[in-house]
Design a protein around this nucleic acid. Sequence first.
DNA 1: GAAATTTATTTCAAGTATAAAATATTTAAG
DNA 2: CTTAAATATTTTATACTTGAAATAAATTTC
Lengths: 149, 149
Amino acid sequence: MVNAEPDSKSRLRLWLRLLKTSRGIEATLRERLRVEFSSTLPRFDVMAALMRHEEGLRMSELSGVLKVSNGNVTGIIERLVEDDMVERVAVKGDRRATKVRLTKGGKIHFAKLAEAHEAWIDELLNAFAAEDADYLSAQLQTVEDQTYD
Amino acid sequence: MVNAEPDSKSRLRLWLRLLKTSRGIEATLRERLRVEFSSTLPRFDVMAALMRHEEGLRMSELSGVLKVSNGNVTGIIERLVEDDMVERVAVKGDRRATKVRLTKGGKIHFAKLAEAHEAWIDELLNAFAAEDADYLSAQLQTVEDQTYD
DNA sequence: GAAATTTATTTCAAGTATAAAATATTTAAG
DNA sequence: CTTAAATATTTTATACTTGAAATAAATTTC
């Protein structure tokens, strides 16, 4: 028995499924961050990146890590600074650059967000046993090298 | 041999991988829609939904299908109407409602977008044979029921 | 070492996105 | 019928996002 359907159809279905799944999870995370912490996913992403870099990151490094535009990061950082979650630090030797890092309060706040976040993901993806999750991650990893920016 | 790492870590890694993969593909699609068609992903999504409903959709049906807010759809439709891709049609019997549907030009334009879109996905996901893609889709499907809005 | 180029960041214009408030209309209740 | 409640949509305020232009500072070139 031959299958008349081209592979492209299966790939298209996979893409639509991938999109639906990730958008669904994202929507749930957004909602919970908003309701339970008056926060947002972009703020969470920025703080997570800064958490992994105690010493701080330049604005351009941050936008590189998060793969978003410079101007975008400027705006999010502005609001995080207003809320005393993040502080700007001058870079000695280069007056064009600024480093940003979490404040003490920012670290404390993020720890709470991160704990809740991990629990939410654990709940939303509980259909996957650890082995299945690892296998799926590996499968998805293979796409990575395909995507060029 | 026991594994000290809790399942939640595997699930978190899966989520981060899922997010990275879909954002990567989305970024590529956005870029190509912009460069090759001066269009955007939200416009594509709206037009795709309208293509599947020849007779048109109410604004609220459209936001339901796309899972985005009413106000959001209002804005996207406004711009599509300006470009003569979409037209508003009065709903007889209910003066509150409006149906929107693709114009003839909108259908012609969307056909080009859709063809390019499918080819891009086929290229970006070529690492997956049809069977692998179908299997992955099925795996991801299991998450669906977990996500509540 | 002054001029040209590159680099780091912000500003800007336009589009996307949400939740909440406002409008307009229809339906239900009394 | 007339008020109250529900429904469909738009408007508003705020945040996020991008690419491109502007600004400022550092580096390279002649």
